[in-house]
C-alpha cells in the first residue's frame, strides 16, 4: 500500500486514481487465512451494499489508503468486467483503452509495473529530485 499511496501522490493531479473495493478475498465465512487470524484481520463477507460500503470504509482506514475508494455493486459488476479478484491493477489511457493490466493477484500484483505504465502516459507532476 505505501507504494500505491506514493504513486497516487505523484499522479493525482493528472490521473483519476481509484481503489475499487470488491468482494473479500479471505473472509471469516469463506477462505480464511491463518496469517489473517494471527493479525486479527477478521472480516466477514458483506451481504448488503450497506455492509459493503462499511467494509470498504473500514478497509481504507485500517490499511491507511489515501486513494479515493469506489465500491463494487452486489452483482460484482466491476469484479466480473475486470477479473479483479482477489486484487489487480489497471491503467486506462486518455482514449479509454486498457494501457496496463497486471496479472491476477496476489502473484501478479506489482505496483512498480503500474508506475512504469503511468510514467509512459504522463510526465510526473512532482518528479522525485535526483542527486548525481
Amino acid at each position: 500500500m505505501p507504494a500505491l499511496n506514493k504513486l497516487y501522490q505523484q499522479y493525482k493531479e493528472q490521473v483519476a486514481f481509484y481503489v475499487v473495493y470488491i468482494e473479500e478475498a479471505h473472509p471469516t465465512d469463506g477462505w480464511q487465512m491463518p496469517n489473517n487470524i494471527k493479525d486479527h484481520v477478521l472480516v466477514a463477507s458483506p451481504h448488503t451494499l450497506e455492509d459493503r460500503n462499511e467494509a470498504a470504509h473500514a478497509c481504507v482506514v485500517k490499511l491507511g489508503i489515501h486513494i479515493p475508494a469506489l465500491v463494487d455493486d452486489m452483482q460484482d459488476s466491476a469484479e466480473r468486467a475486470y477479473t479483479g479478484w482477489p486484487d489487480r491493477l489497471y491503467v486506462i489511457d486518455r482514449s479509454g483503452r486498457v494501457a496496463y493490466k497486471s496479472k491476477a493477484g496476489p502473484f501478479g500484483f506489482h505496483p512498480d509495473e503500474m508506475a512504469q505504465a503511468l510514467a509512459k502516459l504522463v510526465p510526473p507532476a512532482n518528479p522525485v529530485k535526483q542527486t548525481h
Binding site: V15, A16, V20, Y21, N36, I92, L118
Partner: peptide, 27 residues
C-alpha cells in the same frame, strides 16, 4: 464512492485523463 458522496463513471474520464484502478479488498 465508499463515503457515498458521489458516483464515479469511468467513461467520464475518456478524452480527459488516464485512470488508474487498484482492485482489492481488506483480506
Amino acid at each position: 464512492t465508499a463515503d457515498r458522496s458521489a458516483e464515479v463513471s469511468l467513461s467520464s474520464f475518456r478524452g480527459r485523463q488516464p485512470v488508474a484502478l487498484v482492485f482489492g479488498s481488506h483480506t
